Structure formats: structure tokens, C-alpha cells
Amino acid sequence: MNSRRDFLQQLAATAIALPLLPLAGWAHGSNSRDMPHGPVLRVAIMGLGGYGTMVAEAMRACVKAKLTGVISGTPAKIKDWQSRFSIPEKNCYNYENFDQIKDNKDIDVVYITTPNALHHDQVIRVAAAGKHVICEKPMALNAREGMEMVAACKKANVQLLVGYRMHFEPKTLEIIRMRKSGDFGKILFFQGLCGFRIGDPNQWRLNKQLAGGGSLMDIGIYAINGSRYMVGEEPVWVTAQETKTDLVKFKEGVDETIQFQLGFPGGAVASCLSTYNMNNLDRFFLNGEKGFAELQPSTGYGPIKGRTNKGELTHPHVTHQTVQMEEMAGIILEGKQPVVPVNGEEGVKDLKIIDAIYQAVKTGGKVDLSL
């Protein structure tokens, strides 16, 4: 998978040459997003790091969603974003006072892109302020936290969505359509390989208190989630094994490499790998009695490349976060139902599997799942 660092190195070029959206009016130029297109989802981003920047830049091409606010603990970043994205002072908050967004009619939803360990409390606070929430994955550190977040949002009558950008990716959706149509026949096997060699040993992703784990929480979740939407069933058991070669970089509780296997009620099995110590791993493979599908790269920032037994998939690439935010605006504002769910309940299912994988690593046995 392309790392976040790889993306950020390309960010300036991407911002200059955002791909055109297949949406009416956009071809008339950058001012067209100010023309009437119906309701617009007004978004505040919480956490102005690498991924928050990626989402913000991608939203420049959105018609249904607009960046209107920021939440950060770094005043210098807030000032920079105010200038870059024309955000008024009244829509800028820090981590101490962002509860005040409840009185701000310029903000409909908060997109949380902070470290994993912060998601739980921040989602609950945003919900209490009466705003919808989009939370990056993994949604929380464990399933218990995730269920508390879902309950808090239901109590506040706000929507909780998770940043599953691949659920809107055209080649991925085409494979799901073909599987549902029976093109591959009975599904027998899925393989998901996700990994890259991580850099700075001092980054938060290698801090158990902030990340909740290691590669599994960051990159392995793509294989976990992908196995479910590619096979089209919920797994009923898991086994897992951990390999660690660098005890300095990957301290106690921070996994370097985990291999895990999933069993599905229809008889299909999945074999997956998550690692922070190998490059060139970003591949999904689905095998059925009548055909196959392959994505490689499968979850990187794009373009995704895919083929099936019927030939190459040729859908054009559009920046994933642009499509995601357009579709999420449709979900929140128009009640649209995505092909693959992106709600909090979907996030909890992945967290239950993550909990089970860590349990299987620890016990060396098979762990039953009930999603």
C-alpha cells in the first residue's frame, strides 16, 4: 500500500490536478461549486495532520460537501488552514472548547482524523454537541469503546459514519456487484495482503497508548474489512499468529506482523497478512468455483488496479476522499444507502474481529466470532 508519507509527497501535485468528478456543473470551472446544487454538508475537520490535510484537499473538488471549520490543538496549524481554505475565525476550535460547536450553524458534521486512542471521547463529545460524526478507522481501540460510541450517537440522534473510503471505490464495487450476480459462483477463498515498511520509530502509530496496537490497527483493518465485503459474509471464527523481528521499534503491545485466518459460514476461508516491515503488499484476491477477482493495488490511495476472469477493470480513478465525502453527504443529507455500510455498527464489527485476532495471537487457539 502507498504509505501516508508517499501520499504527502505527492499532495501538492494532486491539489493542482484533482481529477474531474462526473457531476453536473463541475466542468464549468472551480466557481461551479458555489452554484446551487441542493443541500451542502458543512464539515469541520478535527486533527490537522497528514490525513486531515488529504481529506481537506480532496474536498476542494466536492459539490455536496464543503470544509467550513477546523479543530486542532496547534494554533499555527489553525492559522495556516484559515488561509489555505478560507475558514473564518468563528469556525476554529481547539480540543478544550470544541463543545461550543453546538451553537455553530456553519458546521453539520465533524470528521475526526486524530490518533486512534482519542476517537472514543471525541466522538462522544461531538455527538453531545448535536453534530454528526465521521470517524477515521479503526473507529476505536476495541469493540467495547465502539459500542459506547454508537450508543452515544443514537442517544444524541446524530449519525456516526466511519471513513471506509474503499466502500465507494468503483472497481471494488464492480467486484461486489459481480459476486452478488453469481459471476464467481460459490466463494471459496479470499487473500488480503496489507503492509509497508514503517519509518519514524517515534511516531504515534508505534505508540500503544495512542494507536492501540501496531500494523493490525492501521493497515490490517483493510484486510479485515475487505474480507467481509469481498466474500459477502460475516466470519464465524479466527486464528492468528504474530511475528516480531525488531523488538526496539515494535515494543510490547505494538505488533509488527500478524497473519490471520477467517472462516465464513458458507465454507469460504480467508488468509490475510498485516505488517509494518514489508513493502509491496497491497493485494486482494477472491476465488470462486466459476471465476476470480484480483485488486493490486487494492486499498492504496490510487489508482486501484483490478481484473477478473472476464478481463481488466477499467473504471476511471477519482480521488477516493472526494468520492467518499460526496457519498457521505448523500447519506447524511439525503438518506442514501451505500452498497457497503459505513455506519458505526460496521466499525464495531471490525473491532470485534480485531479483538478476536489479538486474543487468538495470545492463546494460540481458534476464537469464535458472533458479529
Rank of each mutant, 00 (worst) to 15 (best):
M1D: 06
R4Y: 04
Q9H: 05
Q9A: 02
Q10V: 00
T14L: 07
A17C: 00
A17D: 06
L23R: 10
G25N: 02
G29A: 05
S32Y: 02
M35A: 12
H37K: 07
H37D: 03
P39C: 01
G47V: 03
G50Y: 00
T53F: 00
T53A: 05
V55M: 08
A56Y: 03
A56E: 03
E57Y: 07
V63Y: 03
L67R: 15
I71P: 12
G73E: 01
T74P: 01
A76D: 12
I78F: 00
D80W: 04
R84L: 01
F85P: 02
S86R: 04
D99Q: 09
Q100T: 13
Q100C: 06
I101E: 05
D108M: 04
Y111W: 06
I112P: 15
T113Q: 13
P115N: 08
R125G: 14
V126S: 14
A129Y: 10
A129C: 08
I134R: 10
E136R: 13
E136C: 15
M139Y: 02
M147A: 10
A151E: 09
A152M: 05
A152C: 08
C153Q: 09
H167Q: 07
E169H: 08
I175G: 07
M178S: 12
M178P: 11
D183C: 14
D183I: 07
F184Y: 13
G185Q: 10
G192T: 04
L193Y: 08
C194L: 03
G195K: 11
R197I: 11
G199K: 13
P201T: 02
N202I: 02
L206G: 09
A211M: 12
G213N: 09
L216S: 04
L216I: 12
D218S: 15
G220W: 13
I221V: 15
I221M: 14
Y222E: 09
Y222K: 12
S227E: 00
R228V: 13
Y229K: 09
V231W: 01
Q241R: 15
E242M: 14
E242K: 15
K244Y: 05
K244Q: 15
K244C: 15
D246Q: 12
K249W: 13
E252A: 12
D255N: 15
G263L: 01
G267E: 05
A270L: 05
S271K: 07
N277V: 09
N277C: 12
D282G: 14
E289P: 11
K290T: 13
F292I: 05
F292Y: 14
A293N: 12
E294W: 06
Q296A: 13
G300D: 04
Y301Q: 14
K305G: 01
T308F: 07
K310L: 10
L313C: 01
Q324L: 13
M328Y: 06
A329D: 08
A329Y: 06
G330L: 04
G335A: 04
Q337S: 13
P338H: 02
P341H: 10
N343V: 02
G344W: 00
E345S: 09
E345M: 07
E345G: 11
G347W: 02
K349C: 00
D350E: 09
K352Q: 12
I354V: 14
I354R: 14
I357V: 10
Y358Q: 03
A360T: 03
G364V: 05
K366Q: 08
K366D: 01
L371Q: 02
